[in-house]
Design a protein around this nucleic acid. Structure first.
Lengths: 216, 216, 216, 216
DNA sequence: GATGAATGAGCATTCATTCAT
DNA sequence: CATGAATGAATGCTCATTCAT
């Protein structure tokens, strides 16, 4: 006979419980963002919420659990983002808009991205989901590029999937350097978004399309 | 009470010592690459070299010391790489060649890159050097793009420094996904290098130059 | 990466905590006294209090911290002792009383004295305070001897400061041999105190004063 | 059958060997004196003699062995010192001479005394010998005091053995503070020796003897 | 004899997690 | 619900000592 799992129910039963849980989660986000996940102690999280250390385990099974919840939130948003539709009639406008939104999103979630990147180096579970979310992104871009080729506005000699990963990664990595590594930069989001879009426009789309490109 | 002598000399004095040190270094590289730096124990390193744990400290002050030596090696190579000259007369050929070489280099040092990226998240010392090496890269690219603009072959409406970081980062990040994250990919280095070069060619250089571009 | 919070509060928060801390301190005193500070392990201390090793660090930063607390306690008492006033009208009676009190005090704190002496060999911090406390003692004695000379009852050809250190040290060292080294001795405190006082009386005070001396 | 003790012979067989051994011993004395016995590493000793660490065990069984040899040397000298005869006809002159010689001896061996005191806190073997040597001293003094009483020049109401330990310890402890603790002191050996002798003269000997006392 | 490489036991300290109140 | 006390496994590092050359 299997020993009965003594699974303690971690769901808050009261409004106060909900609040405590939320405070712990917020503190975890802040502490992880500041110190990194590995060097953050559970007691740092509880201290950040002005609580006693034991209470943490009333709401989370362990340290990994908060982390996973925070990263799940981020991944959900990222996936939703990736699924945002592009306007097939004006792909470059879509690129510009999406790029701007993307940078804004990344900036607002820089702490979570930082955690994600740190954790993904070790935790296969996390990395797999993280990679999957990005692949989804690239697939979308690839589809758009292919459609552009079909419509005669995409550069002929281009591997759409490869170019998608390259161009998508370009944006993502710039955001990383900018907001996570805090690369000093004089530029603002619209400026970078325009440069990105131009690189896409000239790099991936036929030059004759570029007449309607976003470059000033 | 005067503190005991701290000037322990860690240099190997014999050929055997050199061999041992090299074995430890190699084992460290392998262990860090496999388990990550933080979760690697010193005893993992010595066990990997079939030695007793104490011997490690005969050659390295601590766990950080091997790591730093490994990363210094990589950084030295990276910086040398960044300083490799471009052929000003045929920038696109240079891009193609450099990109191919870069991917090859990254692939051969994937384990060190993995360590570098992991460690740079926590260690300011390391991150600063790592960022500096990349900036050097981008500065070089920026200079090349500016020269191209001066010569009338670079796209006019382009911020050379911004574009440099974007294009440079694009290559780097693809290499990361490919070799460190082991993104499954059907492509080979020449193929990716050609696509990268085309994106540079069309994205950053005037279209009239592109007649001599590397796309088949 | 910002270093994690280091401001761990080591203060007990509950009555139970206070009790635990006190038990650990008592155990440390006993263990240090028995095995000496250097060879005492933290786990010896916790084992002596029937606790797990980790709890020690809830209340003390490290092994040195308990030691310092114990020695501070002793030093505080010693300094207070040194400041006890002498009766200027009857210096020899003061010597007798003080000597008796001193031996009693030393005997009751023999374990702490043992630790102090051991530690003072290595730790400059401790030695300095320890020496300072003794110097305070000697200064006091010196003042008394000088006053005796002024009043015509102190031996003329005496360097009061030198004699003070000699006479003060004589008492201290006898206490050390007696209670720390456990020199077998048939005598009791009053007997030794009387002999000490006589040596002071005849050695430092003019013989004509000695008529009122404490020797039976 | 008892397993045969594989006792390696540690006696030097050559002149060079003798020299090496002596150098190691000298280095040990210096290193112990500087860093203390416990914190001195065997490799500090060999390094101090510009030799490799392994050689140490060619001449000494272990770290304790050199220490014991050094302390044996000291103890032998101390015991010889204690056995030096006093001039029964002029005890105070003897006290003065012996005290001066004692301070000189202590000063010249301050490093060995320092080691002795440190080690005696832990090592029963050493402490026992050390205490025995001192007791021998005190016994001698006691005999002298008793003889003085018999001859009518010693203070009647004095316990000779007790006074011996007190007076002997006084000298010893002053030497310790002076030369080991390096108590800053303006005085020189003759001055202190004279004060010591006066304290003995007036403290232990009948006042009418003091006419021939050594005080100027 | 001499060198320096190699071994491995020993100990302080950290911190996630559980428990008593 | 909440507190903070208690547990104990885990690991980096030191250094006396032995060994191969």
């Amino acid at each position: 006979m299997v020993a009965p799992e003594v699974t303690t129910d971690l769901t808050p039963k009261t409004a106060k419980g909900n609040r405590t849980r939320a405070l712990l989660k917020a503190s975890a986000r802040e502490v992880f963002g500041r110190q990194g996940f590995k060097s953050a102690r559970v007691s740092d999280i509880t201290a950040g919420a002005s609580m006693s250390s034991g209470i943490f385990y009333r709401y989370y099974a362990d340290k990994d659990a908060v982390r996973d919840e925070l990263l799940s939130d981020l991944l959900k948003d990222v996936v939703a983002f990736a699924r945002d539709s592009w306007d097939p009639n004006d792909p470059l406008r879509s690129v510009l808009r999406t790029t701007e939104k993307y940078f804004t999103f990344y900036r607002d979630n820089r702490d979570l991205y930082k955690i994600m990147i740190e954790v993904a180096q070790h935790e296969d579970q996390v990395r797999v989901k993280w990679v999957a979310a990005r692949e989804e992104f690239y697939r979308r871009i690839g589809r758009m590029l292919r459609r552009a080729q079909d419509q005669g506005v995409g550069r002929r000699d281009m591997d759409p999937d490869l170019a998608a990963a390259l161009l998508g990664g370009m944006t993502e990595y710039y955001a990383y350097m900018w907001f996570v590594e805090e690369r000093s930069s004089e530029v603002d989001i619209p400026t970078v978004a325009r440069e990105v879009t131009n690189l896409w426009a000239y790099g991936a789309f036929s030059s004759d399309t570029s007449s309607g490109g976003p470059h000033e």
